[in-house]
Design a protein around this nucleic acid. Structure first.
Lengths: 243, 243
DNA sequence: CGAGGGTTTGAATTAGATCAACTCTCGTGG
DNA sequence: CCACGAGAGTTGATCTAATTCAAACCCTCG
């Protein structure tokens, strides 16, 4: 994994700079730490980049690192012995990964778009948490938010129809403001493949494709390309999503 | 909700006693707090009992309380407008509920067996967390554990067959040591109804029933009564559960 | 321009749902 | 004590949403 480096801004202290100017700071747990203390954080983080298709967390491996995504997007998934896959979530800027209690990771993570991340060793993270209680609080909040999202996803996987699942997925992207180049608007960028969407929604690629086609023929969405979807009728889509 | 009370042990300070002698202390986050500080904890907790069928957390209600289950069992679930239900988990002794970031609960909770619980107001819990960093750490661990369980459940709901789901469920109960009267052994007590099991596994009651019958006819389990199941072949069951 | 992946569409199949009947258990009251 | 009824659970027959199998149809890139 290549170590990410950025030329220091002249006149600013080198150790502070990477965190102070980090694009992800606003969305990440790091914003619990005051400017003056960012040097401590930066000293503990190892910044690296992961290319699309590369796995940077492997289910079952010793869980000795924690990751903070600062750019790009990744998929988190679990595999069964015969290859069946369930994508449990997508991680983007600001997401924190690998907070395992067990000694090993419970899921794998693979970059979809080029990912930039900060890696913390287990020991160092816990040292940071003790040093900055506000950071620990933010982490707890983050975990609680993830838990709520997980429960919503269980409802989707256990009880929703294919149509409702796809609508929920699009609605989620819309609410996340997943426009192309980070812009918001009716157009959504889908960085993941149909296969990823299918494994996230507990469906097959064929069913996802068919369902999208049907939503298009009904005028709810447009599909200018396989990786772009325009929401024509957000209200009807949201209604569909909730049954 | 009736307030639970227990006669104070003669000679022990009243404010300390309830937590010090609590059956759930070993399994609960409260074990992060030293004996000497239990008075603070007890002062903040309101103990109450909930009867089977009673709902003590309602999805969408203001999330101003946190609950620590000290006895009994409860189901956590989300409902759709048309009545479809997904049970996202079962909570027993030691479980902590209601850690919402949002202003409202994301799920409902209903007692299956009589539940005894400690209720903390939002304000008081956060005061406790600041006062006892070890408590916050335990809560973070707990949340991380729940998250891992949620991911496992997503794999089950999204990718496993009915047979694998039921086997996973029984294997989970077995590993949790869910014997009758808290005993461990090959016999499992199922306090929840078939309908609850179905809504937990994303199946119908008929499919759950049929699948259990089939596992019985294959000699993997015995079903002495609707609420008791004997695991005859734990290894084969576990193998089935993972595909 | 052609190869190869990802995607879409079509036809056949099936796991699980739905609809319906029956059984078991347990509590109630004659 | 036993008949009765209600609710939970089981079993059977049928149906259907989604999967599977199969064949095009793109794009993109050498």
């Amino acid at each position: 994994m290549a170590v990410f480096s950025r030329p220091p801004i002249p006149g600013s202290p080198l150790s502070l700079e990477p965190c102070l100017s980090c694009d992800a700071r606003a969305e990440s747990v790091c914003n619990a730490i005051a400017d003056a203390d960012l040097g401590r954080l930066a000293a503990y983080a190892v910044v690296s980049e992961v290319q699309p298709g590369q796995t940077f967390i492997e289910e079952g491996d010793p869980a000795d690192s924690f990751f903070n995504i600062t750019a790009g997007s990744a998929k988190l998934y679990k595999l069964m012995a015969d290859g069946r896959r369930q994508i449990t979530g997508f991680a983007i800027r600001g997401h924190f990964l690998g907070l395992a209690v067990s000694a090993t990771y419970a899921f794998s993570a693979e970059a979809i778009e080029p990912v930039r991340l900060c890696r913390f060793s287990r020991v160092r993270l816990f040292r940071l948490l003790s040093e900055f209680p506000a950071l620990e609080r933010r982490l707890l909040e983050r975990a609680a938010t993830e838990l709520v999202a997980a429960q919503e996803q269980m409802l989707l996987l256990g009880r929703k129809t294919a149509r409702e699942r796809v609508a929920s997925f699009l609605d989620m992207l819309r609410r996340a403001g997943a426009g192309p180049c980070g812009r918001t608007g009716p157009t959504l960028a889908l960085p993941m493949s149909r296969s990823d969407v299918a494994d996230y929604l507990g469906l097959t690629i064929e069913t996802v494709s068919r369902t999208l086609s049907r939503l298009r023929s009904e005028g709810l969405i447009e599909i200018p390309s396989a990786t772009e979807i325009v929401i024509r009728d957000p209200a009807r889509l949201a209604a569909l999503a909730s049954g």
